[in-house]
Design a protein around this nucleic acid. Sequence first.
DNA 1: AATTGTCTTATTGTCGACAATATTACGAAT
DNA 2: ATTCGTAATATTGTCGACAATAAGACAATT
Lengths: 245, 245
Amino acid sequence: MPKPALLLPVPASPPGRVQRVTKESTRDKVYTSLRNAILSGRLRCGERVKEIPLAEELGVSRAILREAMQQLVHEGLLEFNSYRGARVIELRPEQIDEIVEARILLESRAVRLATERIHNAQREELNAFEKQLQREKDPLRAGQSDFRLHQRIWQISGHATIEKLLIQLTSPLFAMSLLMRSKETRDHHASSPLPRGTHKRLIEAICQGTPNDATNELEAHLTENWTAIRRRVAEFIAREEAEKL
Amino acid sequence: MPKPALLLPVPASPPGRVQRVTKESTRDKVYTSLRNAILSGRLRCGERVKEIPLAEELGVSRAILREAMQQLVHEGLLEFNSYRGARVIELRPEQIDEIVEARILLESRAVRLATERIHNAQREELNAFEKQLQREKDPLRAGQSDFRLHQRIWQISGHATIEKLLIQLTSPLFAMSLLMRSKETRDHHASSPLPRGTHKRLIEAICQGTPNDATNELEAHLTENWTAIRRRVAEFIAREEAEKL
DNA sequence: AATTGTCTTATTGTCGACAATATTACGAAT
DNA sequence: ATTCGTAATATTGTCGACAATAAGACAATT
């Protein structure tokens, strides 16, 4: 009897719930697993999430699964329709624009703060992250490393509020980028990797304490990356519409 | 037998859940009631929220109440500690600073967009809101009108993502301002009303299509208002600390 | 054959009860 | 009197079952 197949190690750390020393609750474990399943592409965008099979697979009751799902709804990764079940979020191009715009606003400030507050140990850590990201072959793992790198910058900024908002904004974006990657693979397109050069310049600017350079690099990086993804999303939607007719 | 005393009309509309035509679920009703209870001061900041009595008062099961509470945790109005219950959020002065800073970042953009996109009917509506706010005697109702006015501006901006984030950021702030007001009343201080002149200038700038003026007014308004509240929060915390010793 | 109404079934919404844990009260030892 | 350990209690964490609803199958009617 195959037990929890979704219960796997966590790639990207969950948002800043300041848990006490008490042991992790079942709900939090379920939440982490489910979030992980979406952010690793095992649950794809637009996919229906049925409660009973999922609860059985995870070995928990539906009540606790629903609480975890509720959290994911607020994190922007799931969508509920009453009596019609939950689906993994699927963003329209205009929503991607909105999210990226908000993200640039908030992350610019985070990067500026990080530039001011970073310590030497953290400088080394960021550079190590970046080198690891450069070496990463697998596009999925590269995407996750990218997410982690940004999250680390947000942490260094020391602005917990902005950090929380950025996690919320970025999670659905990341899920969509995974979806695009998988659809490209299916349709025999070239899997386009992240632009990695901009990372290097961003990190250098943060470490060297030049906040204006850092925010400029950030904005260029985000705009470049996500206009590309936005275009592909729009193309796929257009193709799907065409197939319907 | 006194039934749902917390089930009362909604002062501030809940965040943008795009409900289908289906009837409102019990969970959503509970969520609205609870949110309303916090945002009207019936449940005060720092107050413990026990599940069993509350579920009985609302006439629902604990499971559904917990789902609604989960939503409020993500909206920043409740705090969970495992096996130690939920409390209404209580912000430290530094958190107020963080939230206000993030709010200024996002709301500036919202105001700028609103300035560009506003229609004539909405201009009249905003002015009517503002006049109503001027006339409002009761500080609690004035605060709620203020919240509604800002929310209306966010809606006019047409940026759903920023609107959602702003609701999330502002809700705990509003709850704290209510707490301050009630504590002031208890301690026989003068209940300090919102600075209303800045509202007028903000709305005028939005209606006249001068985005720079509008964002300047907004920043001044928010900074002025919340540094005052922040100071009072700090004073109360200091007083409480002193009483302990 | 197409359409519409009914019935079945799959899935979600809600509930009450039991298990696990923290808090409190209380008594014994120092 | 104080402190520490232990039991009682209150509260939360988790579960399985029943009710309400939507989606799909199927037959009767035109």
